[in-house]
């Protein structure tokens, strides 16, 4: 039997479904029906993504976005648990509390590195297409069981707590997935080629420095637009690096690639389009300004970008 990625998505979908039930019945939420519907539809797309025809998935996503656009997604008010009760449980469990938390990364690493090659009968245990994702899913199931056993809480409590977190993240939970969708559509519409055509116009002929500068900054800017350095790399490299830096100035492809990709990552640090790295964490950490993480990263990203330009220039020179 193979544990496929689809099983992990189904697990996510079931979690979302159960959470949405609590949202539907949350009297403290003035928009409980539409809010519940948002999570309910989202959970269905996770759970049945492979079963429902794509056209209907598309429509469901548009309904979700409409709910958000009309202000239909609100947070419930949660009864703040008394700090004493929490403190009492903490004292009982002490540092054992770290165990399930640490089980997640440890088991994921073990699972994705060691168990990825294990086969039961003829079939691999983990979906070979994406063993890390499956390992993370499996690790979370084990960690959840450990956490339930340790805290002696019920699965119901766990779902309630999960809903608290999910609602505090809110619409941001869907954003990374939607941005990746946008990236796909951008690529199909040929946004990449247009951007390269524009950027290459800026390069004066026979200037190594300008070529390097535009290549690196272009990687960063394109990444900021697409939210993903992987989308920027082929486009910028085919447009600038191969004709100019490699063929004209004889640059080494390995050096170029390594540095250019990092220049792209500098862009990732500066854009809300990389939502799973920059916006979701802000929601997850209850930061008022959703761009707070980007603000913190900005100086480091800019300085590192400058370092990359200098490094590439001197290596080719």
């Amino acid at each position: 039997m193979t544990i496929s990625v689809e099983a992990v998505y189904a697990f996510m979908g079931i979690i979302g479904l159960l959470c949405s039930i609590y949202t539907f019945f949350d009297k403290s939420n003035s928009r409980r029906i539409t809010s519940g519907l948002f999570y309910f539809i989202y959970a269905l797309t996770l759970l049945f993504g492979k079963v429902i025809p794509p056209f209907y998935i598309g429509l469901m996503v548009i309904v979700m976005v409409l709910i958000v656009a009309c202000g239909g997604l609100r947070k419930g008010r949660f009864r703040e648990e008394s700090t004493e009760a929490r403190e009492e449980r903490r004292q009982r469990l002490g540092s054992w509390l770290f165990l399930p938390a640490l089980l997640i990364p440890v088991l994921t690493v073990v699972g994705s590195k060691l168990l990825a090659n294990i086969k039961i009968g003829r079939l691999p245990l983990f979906d070979p297409a994406n063993p890390t994702l499956v390992a993370l899913g499996a690790a979370c199931v084990i960690a959840l069981i450990a956490a339930l056993a340790l805290t002696r809480d019920t699965p119901r409590t766990s779902i309630k707590e999960c809903r608290r977190l999910l609602e505090s993240i809110g619409w941001a939970v869907v954003l990374p997935q939607l941005l990746a969708t946008l990236g796909t559509i951008f690529t199909k519409a040929g946004v990449g080629t247009v951007v390269t055509q524009i950027t290459t116009k800026f390069i004066p002929e026979h200037s190594l420095f300008w070529a390097v500068l535009i290549y690196c900054v272009g990687m960063a800017v394109f990444t900021m637009i697409m939210g993903n350095a992987f989308a920027a790399f082929p486009v910028m490299t085919a447009g600038i690096a191969i004709p100019l830096l490699i063929q004209q100035f004889g640059a080494d492809a390995n050096q170029l690639a390594a540095i250019a990709m990092f220049a792209g990552y500098c862009g990732t640090l500066m854009t809300p389009m990389a939502a799973n790295f920059n916006i979701v964490p802000a929601a997850l950490l209850d930061l008022k300004d959703k761009n707070h993480v980007i603000r913190v990263q900005f100086p480091t990203a800019l300085i590192t970008l400058a370092v990359n330009v200098a490094l590439m220039y001197f290596l080719i020179k």
Binding site: F11, R86, A147
Partner: peptide
């Protein structure tokens, strides 16, 4: 692109541990 939302699988555990004062 559903893999982008993988963080959901961690929420039940993190929520439970937070409730207990992690």
């Amino acid at each position: 692109n559903r893999y982008m939302s993988i963080l959901i699988v961690t929420l039940p555990i993190v929520g439970l541990l937070e409730r207990n004062g992690l």
